[in-house]
Design a binder for these strands. Structure first.
Length: 338
DNA sequence: AAAGTCTGCAACCGCTTTCTT
DNA sequence: CAAGAAAGCGGTTGCAGACTT
């Protein structure tokens, strides 16, 4: 037969914990340690069920809990892990010392999720969704703020980067360099976060002398793995060419160019921006480019098979290209997954 | 200043997995 | 091996405080 019931639910207290209850629970755990939640409430003199005690301890009273705002690095880690693990909050929390699954879940739902949607990123698949994009917020800041959007997302999902490269056909060298260096710095940061011992990437800025057609685009941003100082990396990035107030789409005539007046668009209503720029976006066939055989990992959802020790070579490559770093052969996914 | 709305988060609920007998 | 309880987990709710009208 099984165990006896953990607690009689009748007459047990629910709702917010009082200071006195917290004190009782902490004192008891300091003396006896956590665990055996079934008998703990009775022994500690609490009118709560064991489940409630466990939750209170793990989410609030534990001494190693880090409170306060999430740092940029923590946010970035959450986004990366979520793109890989989905809503596996406990697995994500295991990678963020001092943070609880509940806290991460709340933070995701109240902050990160909303911001991704605002930036046109589907929070479930981490893929770009133009219909979700808040054009006004993107266009209203200086330099189109495109690099900010991309900084956060390109290392999560290459499709976003590919969208950026679609916008990268002017020949403004200064902006090419700016964006390229920005991307490089961010890539190195993320790389070192994942692989602390990996040397920094240093490559020369490729020169784009004229707008790329789709064929050369595919060639240019194909998922070639490049060997950088002995590390195999996905070389799938290139600098978009964004001039001060124009972004030129490939295969577009001058009249179709996506003109964004960065100096005055802050005064535009979202609807007027949409009306002004939608024709260009609609005319351009994103689907045809996105369906070209580039690095496009299958979007993960919560039911997707997670990386494990039986992960195939192809799957490894997929995850590599997703995050732009190599997963060494010796890497034990099972350890990672806890 | 009051009422209504929004936001953040602690805690609960119910389902699944793990463990014990 | 089966039954049933404990533990774990993710989704949801309810409330307090902040913000807006």
């Amino acid at each position: 037969m099984g165990r006896s019931p953990c607690c009689d639910k009748n007459g047990l207290k629910k709702g917010p914990w009082t200071q006195e209850e917290d004190l009782k629970l902490m004192e008891y755990i300091q003396l006896h340690g956590p665990g055996n939640w079934r008998t703990l409430p009775k022994n500690a003199g609490l009118q709560r069920c064991g489940k409630s005690c466990r939750l209170r301890w793990t989410n609030y009273l534990r001494p190693d809990i880090k409170r306060g705002r999430f740092s940029f690095e923590e946010e970035e880690t959450i986004i990366q892990l979520h793109s890989m693990l989905g809503n596996k909050w406990s697995a994500i929390a295991a990678r963020l010392p001092g943070r609880t699954d509940n806290e991460i879940k709340n933070y995701w739902n109240t902050h990160i999720r909303k911001r991704l949607i605002r930036n046109g990123i589907d929070p479930v698949t981490h893929s770009p969704r133009l219909e979700l994009m808040d054009l006004s917020s993107i266009l209203s800041s200086a330099q189109l703020n495109l690099s900010n959007l991309l900084n956060l997302q390109t290392l999560v999902n290459p499709d976003v980067l590919r969208l950026a490269t679609l916008l990268a056909t002017s020949s403004n060298q200064e902006n090419q360099e700016l964006f390229y260096n920005n991307q490089m710095n961010h890539m190195n940061q993320t790389l070192h976060h994942q692989l602390p011992n990996c040397p920094s990437i240093q490559t020369n800025l490729p020169t784009i002398s004229q707008p790329l057609n789709q064929e050369s685009h595919s060639q240019y941003i194909s998922p070639n793995l490049v060997n950088v100082n002995g590390q195999i990396l996905d070389g799938n990035f290139m600098p978009p060419c964004i001039s001060d107030n124009h972004v030129t789409l490939p295969n577009q005539t001058q009249s179709d160019q996506y003109k964004a007046q960065t100096s005055d668009n802050s005064s535009l209503e979202p609807s007027s921006i949409e009306n002004k720029y939608n024709p260009t976006i609609q005319n351009f066939n994103f689907d045809s480019v996105l369906s070209t055989p580039m690095s496009s990992p299958t979007p993960l959802n919560s039911s997707s098979t997670l990386v494990n020790s039986t992960t195939t070579e192809d799957e490894r490559e997929t995850y590599c290209s997703m995050f732009k770093f190599e997963i060494p052969e010796s890497f034990e996914f099972e350890d990672f997954m806890l």
